[in-house]
């Protein structure tokens, strides 16, 4: 098998990542892995396969809802690691770059001081995608309602929960701007 990164050397390292049930495999050679080491956790003082593996292991754990990750879920807005791409906050602060769009929500309010320092602001004003904009808003609203629903069930406020459930159903069935709804 040839390295996926450089397509030149034989791949000697094989990884399987399972994030939210989505399986991705990658096969790379050692020199490419060393290169990637720059952003793989704990490799600032040289690369080792162990570090690479533990880095991957870490974010597999936080992807599934078992073991130590139980706490990660509870303090999600303050999470120190993006569960989508595996970038930690300290890596982010070293690189000055995010790994994926979800880093923004995982690091959440923690970014406020930084953004405030760079831009003097923390909230976007300006252009919104015409097509995606409405859908994003809807998604946000649904997430919010679902959280509220959980809360009211926990507090045994079943009347309120029923109302929320109906509202969620409505939204899911007849989203505003249904024409662009693509399931």
């Amino acid at each position: 098998m040839i390295c996926q990164q450089c397509s030149q050397k034989p791949a000697t390292l094989h990884f399987t990542k399972i994030i939210n049930g989505q399986k991705t495999e990658f096969h790379i050679c050692e020199s490419c892995a060393r290169e990637k080491g720059e952003w793989i956790p704990g490799t600032s003082n040289g690369f080792s396969i162990h570090n690479l593996l533990s880095g991957l292991l870490d974010f597999d754990l936080s992807g599934g809802d078992s073991g130590t990750s139980g706490t990660a879920h509870a303090n999600k807005p303050q999470a120190t690691r993006c569960e989508n791409c595996g970038l930690t906050y300290s890596q982010f602060s070293k690189l000055g770059r995010f790994g994926c769009d979800e880093c923004y929500s995982f690091f959440g309010d923690r970014l406020d001081p930084l953004l405030k320092r760079v831009h003097g602001n923390t909230v976007h004003i300006g252009k919104i995608p015409k097509r995606g904009g409405g859908r994003i808003q809807r998604k946000r609203e649904l997430e919010d309602l679902k959280k509220q629903l959980q809360l009211s069930i926990m507090n045994e406020e079943f009347e309120q929960a029923a109302k929320l459930r109906d509202r969620i159903r409505d939204l899911e069935k007849n989203p505003p701007g249904a024409a662009e709804h693509n399931g």
Binding site: L114, L115, T122, H124, R140
Partner: peptide, 25 residues
């Protein structure tokens, strides 16, 4: 582009970019 692909966009932060110095617009 936007009419054909889904952009990484967040209501609060705007268009999401790799570097925090470009986020927003």
């Amino acid at each position: 582009f936007e009419s054909h692909v889904d952009y990484a966009f967040d209501e609060k932060r705007g268009y999401l970019t790799s570097c925090p110095t470009n986020v927003g617009t």
